[in-house]
Computed example of a mutant assay.
Amino acid sequence: MMEKDYHLAELNNQSDALDAIRKLEQQLTKTYGSEVALIAYAADADNEKDKA
């Protein structure tokens, strides 16, 4: 199994994705009882060919 490399996902122009992340953060914070922050990562482009 090949190990994948990731970088922070650039979601600045992805309002739907940001809204979904914020909503899930709120739900997890309520469930967990402490503030939860989610971080989005994306696979490096070089790793995309490994999926094929």
Rank of each mutant, 00 (worst) to 15 (best):
I21L: 11
N47L: 02
M1E: 09
D44I: 00
G33D: 13
A52W: 12
M1D: 06
E10G: 02
A37F: 05
L38K: 02
N12I: 00
K30S: 13
Y6C: 09
A45M: 04
A9R: 03
Q14W: 05
Y41H: 06
D5S: 11
A45W: 03
L18G: 12
M1S: 13
D44G: 04
Q27H: 05
S15T: 10
E35G: 02
K23A: 05
Y41G: 07
A40D: 07
Q14R: 13
N12H: 02
A45F: 12
E3I: 07
L8Y: 14
L18S: 15
S34P: 00
Y32C: 10
N47S: 11
A37D: 14
H7V: 15
K51C: 06
K23V: 10
T29V: 11
D5L: 09
A37W: 08
D5Q: 14
A42N: 10
A37V: 14
Q27G: 00
E25I: 01
E35S: 04
K23E: 12
I39G: 02
Q14G: 01
K4G: 06
R22M: 12
K4R: 12
D19M: 10
A43T: 03
T29Y: 09
E3V: 09
A37Q: 11
G33Y: 12
E3D: 06
A42S: 06
D5M: 09
Y32V: 15
V36K: 10
D50M: 01
K30R: 12
D16M: 02
D19I: 03
L38W: 03
N13C: 07
L28P: 08
I21T: 06
Q27M: 02
A17F: 11
M1N: 09
R22Y: 11
L8F: 15
L11E: 13
E10Y: 08
M1Q: 05
K51G: 04
M2W: 06
M1P: 14
D19R: 12
D5E: 15
L28I: 01
E25K: 00
Y32G: 03
A17W: 11
D5P: 00
E10I: 04
A42W: 08
D19H: 04
L38A: 01
Y41T: 11
K30N: 03
K51P: 01
G33S: 11
A20D: 14
G33P: 10
L24W: 01
I39F: 08
E25H: 01
K4L: 14
L18V: 14
A40I: 10
G33I: 02
D50R: 07
S15D: 13
L28W: 15
M2C: 03
E3F: 05
S15F: 05
Y6M: 03
K49L: 06
Y32P: 02
Y6W: 15
K49H: 10
K23S: 03
Y6F: 15
I21Q: 13
L38Y: 09
L8Q: 10
L28K: 00
G33T: 07
N12T: 10
